[in-house]
Write a protein that binds this DNA or RNA. Sequence first.
DNA 1: CTGAAAGCGCTTACAG
DNA 2: CTGAAAGCGCTTACAG
Lengths: 336, 336
Amino acid sequence: MSVDIKKVAEKAGVSIATVSRVFSNSDLVRQPTKDKVLKVSKELNYIPNPIARSLSRQLTDTIGVVLPDLVGEFFMDIIHGIDEEAYKQNWFVLVSSSHSKRNILETLIEFMGSGRVDGVILMVPQIDERIHEIIRRSKRPIVLINAGGDTNSSANFKIDNFQGAYNIVEHLIKKHNYKKVGLVEGPKDNYDAIDRSNGYLKALQKYGLNKNGSMITTGDFSVESGYHGFKKLISNKVKPDAVFMANDMMAVGAYQAAKEMDIRIPENIAVVGFDDIYLSQFLHPRLTTVHVPIVELGSKSVIHLLEMVSNKKKKNKPFTEILPTSLVIGRSCGCK
Amino acid sequence: MSVDIKKVAEKAGVSIATVSRVFSNSDLVRQPTKDKVLKVSKELNYIPNPIARSLSRQLTDTIGVVLPDLVGEFFMDIIHGIDEEAYKQNWFVLVSSSHSKRNILETLIEFMGSGRVDGVILMVPQIDERIHEIIRRSKRPIVLINAGGDTNSSANFKIDNFQGAYNIVEHLIKKHNYKKVGLVEGPKDNYDAIDRSNGYLKALQKYGLNKNGSMITTGDFSVESGYHGFKKLISNKVKPDAVFMANDMMAVGAYQAAKEMDIRIPENIAVVGFDDIYLSQFLHPRLTTVHVPIVELGSKSVIHLLEMVSNKKKKNKPFTEILPTSLVIGRSCGCK
DNA sequence: CTGAAAGCGCTTACAG
DNA sequence: CTGAAAGCGCTTACAG
């Protein structure tokens, strides 16, 4: 610090314009001049001030990340993917999340309205008219991650919940020949949960298993709700021979319930989950589940956002990419 | 955007100086003037440009966070604590981590040398002379988190690994009366691991248990090394009746080994860990371990850093705070 | 290929 | 209490 472009120019015997050009890699500078400037800069330990640069160029080389929360591996992986990709492209990452005291919308508006970032990656459970409004009016691009609601007029990256659920239920039916597959679904108002339930239903239908209402119960993605949901299903008159827990946390609850009731997985009943959380590999037996590419979700969002920033992608052209999931086979489904 | 201080000044019939003063809450402005400016600003949707503000004030209201990695709950909690506290105080957070391609030192230098942040929270496994050099020469304050090595000349926040280990081993000895307490320690060059080993040794000494070399083996904090370390200890001539795994991940390995060998925890042997990772509450039996206040580590660092930034704390006055841990009692130690 | 100068949008000492 | 003006450290169209 303290050493600025003027000092360098002076010492190198050139104008500040030339110094500036050297550092922005302009090809308007002759090699000898460039060498001299670079040499002096090294001696003086000069680093161009990014703030001044930002003010002048009206660009910050920084992307904002707005998340609903900063807890759990999901968000860690997202940030990880974003940071890694941003770094590759020489960008900075400003993070922000909502807390009790903070409102996502406010943060978003602050980010967008100020010159602090050139674009934003936004993750909200559901996009509503106010968010659409912000996206529409904003000069800076926004990429949405896993947003529910009407995403037809924005840039989106999502996880293929439907297909993931379909695949794992199909695995239960086709590979293991289970006829009575139960479901403990997620919250009714959660888009991920809804898509997973639909994938489940689609698989049942495809294989001609009739959809038995009593084989489905609703949880809230928590361990406890998985515990109770599982207990409820197996106390029905018609017991399922396999249960799809709509996320791994609920599957953990199912394991606890099974242990308590001396029910063996998968000998007495198969259990599968969704998310492939870190914990799931340590369950006994290892949980069969659906892997979701979270890190990739983060990095792809960055790539797309930066293309929008540089106008390689039109910022108001709607776009949606749905990232495929993959099956993680453990022993809990009956596989060896 | 696009609406700047000039437009507001014009429309409100004042100078830009006055508008500026209103937004920096100067008490040099009469209430009616202030009201008028605020009203016009609202109408025009004016938000002061933070970049211009930063350039002029030579302050960014942003802190940089440099972490060794962006994986795992530990780092998530750190960021969580930092973000929450920074937000409370109206600051922004720029994160950066090292990857394969990135070097921490480089990132740090870039952060410090540019005007991009007003201070940095740095987490490095070990601080060496080059980092001391940077801290010494930097105009902007740096707070170190959990750094090993010579931290006597910097500001530091750490976890009390020694006392935590001492306490949990004491619990094994005093509460449960175990006489042969084994240890699977962490890497020899890891400061956390060393302190934990020392806490263990101190407890043995305090209670007059002789330190039996064959009761100690070295792991690397991974699940696998815990698995092997545990097996090694129980295949000794003298079997331990309790084992302190120096972190929870290794404890997970111990559980796997025990399950495989049909050894029951805690009936046949007690097992305890360190870290209180999320997973540990789902182990059967629930793992007795040491909780470390990571979120608090992050938030305290921010508080201290901001005091340094505002010169309430002298930036070159060495400072170290060691945060206490707490015991988390599960059934794995023998407690009900 | 290089330089002088205007401009990015603020803050703040100075003068009144 | 308020304003004119210099300054923060760059970039870049313009002129040569």
